[in-house]
Design a protein around this nucleic acid. Structure first.
Length: 192
DNA sequence: CCCTGATTCGC
DNA sequence: GCGAATCAGG
């Protein structure tokens, strides 16, 4: 893969939008996030702000200091055989509001969730947006790093777990963390 | 552990 | 110019 104009453009666009290097790399395909970062630097747009460099202070000089070659053999470059399933099914609006506590089987500890009626509207919008991209995992497919946000009515077939990459230690993906963990003050203000 | 960007340096 | 390896930090 080479950096064609198109690809460079997309890179610039995404980087400008604040997308992470890995996300850009996935989008472009055929390149690693390292390649993206390297390109970003070469293009001279590494600094997302604009100017004002934050000094540097402790320069560096650790150019090396690691003679010992680590057996870090990581098979990279996935064959890129993603099924790329074109989800055509209707998103099916989610009433999703109650009937939740009962669905969590013992042993599968899930974090507490607020009732939908007191969640930040913006966060909710974001959620419904990303839920379209949800991986729709089943309970057994969940891992420590898949979003455990339940979607739909567990009493029907129309139910699944978000499954997107979780954010750090949290149990949910970015968007769901947004509706799951809201500042107390925020909630109090909205309510009432 | 996962992730992020930054840097170096052989190619 | 490119990007893997590495570093540094969250």
């Amino acid at each position: 893969m080479s950096w064609s104009d198109e690809r460079v453009e997309l890179l610039k666009k995404m980087w400008g939008e604040g997308q992470s290097a890995s996300q850009i790399a996935k989008e472009l395909g055929g390149v690693t996030r390292n390649a993206v970062i390297g390109k970003v630097h070469r293009l001279g747009l590494s600094n997302r702000s604009g100017g004002a460099k934050s000094s540097d202070a402790g320069a560096k000089s650790k150019a090396d200091a690691k003679p010992s070659a680590k057996p870090k053999a990581k098979a990279k470059a996935a064959p890129k055989a993603a099924p790329e399933t074109k989800a055509e099914e209707a998103p099916a609006p989610q009433p999703q509001t109650r009937a939740r506590a009962a669905i969590i089987p013992a042993g599968q500890r899930l974090p507490p969730q607020p009732s939908a009626n007191e969640i930040d509207p913006e966060a909710l919008a974001k959620v419904s947006e990303i839920e379209k991209k949800a991986k729709k995992l089943t309970l057994m497919e969940l891992t420590e790093r898949t979003c455990k946000w339940p979607v739909g009515d567990p009493a029907t077939e129309n139910f699944w777990f978000c499954g997107l990459p979780v954010q750090s230690g949290k149990p949910y993906c970015e968007a769901h963390v947004g509706v799951a963990f809201q500042p107390m003050s925020s909630r109090r203000d909205r309510k009432r």
